[in-house]
Design a protein around this nucleic acid. Sequence first.
RNA 1: GGGCCCGUAGCUCAGAUGGUAGAGCGGCGGGCUGUUAACCCGUAGGUCGUGGGUUCGAGUCCCACCGGGCCCGCCA
Length: 429
Amino acid sequence: MRRRAEELHKCNDGEEVEVWGWVRNRRRHGRLVFIDLRDSTGVVQVAVKGGIADDESLEKASSIRKESAIKIRGYVVHDPRAPGGVEVRCTKLEVIGESLDDYPLRKGVGAKVLYDNRHLYIRSPKITALLKIRSNLIGAVHEHFRSKGFYEVDCPTIITAAVEGGATLFEVNYFGSRAYLTQSVQFYQEAAIYSLEKVYSVQPSFRAEKSRTTRHLTEFWHVEAELAFADLETLINTVEDLVHNVVIRTEELSEKELKILGRKIRTEEVEKPFFRIKYEEALGILREHGLDAEWGIDIGADEERIISSEFDRPVFLTHFPREVKAFYHRLDPTDRRVTLSADLLAPRGNGEIVGGGVRIHDYDELIERIREFQLDPNDYKWYIDLRRFGSVPHVGFGMGIERILKWIIDLPHVRAACLFPRTTTRIYP
RNA sequence: GGGCCCGUAGCUCAGAUGGUAGAGCGGCGGGCUGUUAACCCGUAGGUCGUGGGUUCGAGUCCCACCGGGCCCGCCA
């Protein structure tokens, strides 16, 4: 009977099993060969011994290359000398798909080799664990939104006008006319709330900015949501619930994978409530740290680090000046210098993980803000049109999957959270 | 767009002050029935990223380019 690597410790001594998988490593001792056999559930040691296995199997075990796919027939033995306390004594080894060359990855290879061989590197137990955690996290996002009455919508990724600015879009030749890859599905979701009221999506966004830091990807997975009949307070509570529940749930689902990675998700970091400070208060904190924080400055990486190091839980930064936020942010009716916006900073200098705010629902205010940013209202015709037919106050936000992962499992770079990352310098494999 | 750093064997790296190259791992051959990134013995493998310059002589100094990494701006 075929067994998975992770099931073998539950088997009785002497139980006959088949294990199918890939040769992770091999150690030869003459007529005794150890194979670390890997499948999607883990790694198990196979002992191929002369006298137990037939000579053909022993010879094959002795010469087989790393990452060859093989089928082992044998019996289970609990043996303290085996890693994990259990191994399979092989009676018959069968090759399914042999490695045709020496495997290019081994201990000690550098980041470039690993990313050049990402198609192979993702087989490693650590990357396998990481991909499972990512899958658990995205599952938790869907669980959360569905339990809160949101509908999932699927929005186009080929668009004609920018959401943020103009300079950071990837251009696409669309049958001879100019189109772009989307940076955000926000505008489409804003349309969808007039049908479904509460919507969310998980899909890729594209940013062409030539940013080369450990927090940037040119293609990243974006959780976005939009809510009708909502204000800033509702937005903040919605984001707080989402981040709290998703991190807690991911930790629950990923116990085994976290052990493999040697990581611990600090669930105490997502205890509610998160901190909430206004832009103006943030300037005060910066001044206490000796910075010349004038009204109107944007909160950059250095500033974010200072602010987030003041708190041991995530911090909402709200009420940014109108000049530093995109045109669609609603101005605060009680102080028109600022927007009703909220960014969420992760602890320990992990920076912005969520950006959101109240959207402008008033027709005239939207036109005014588009002009203020020297954009052409004709580029946003249908978006503006939404304000002409039953417009309601609404809010929305975007959250970066890879940034959440980088934060909660201490990754060195957001690209480590991707199956095949896309950065300014990497589009292959 | 701005700043800093790196490129030497398949991989990870060492090669002060200029004198034409080394180690470990991996590969290959041999040995080994309890290893855990196995070990032991032997062995092959490099126009030093590319192009140009300085010099009697360049892996080493200078310039340009290519490839990669980090930080900032910008963002999730």
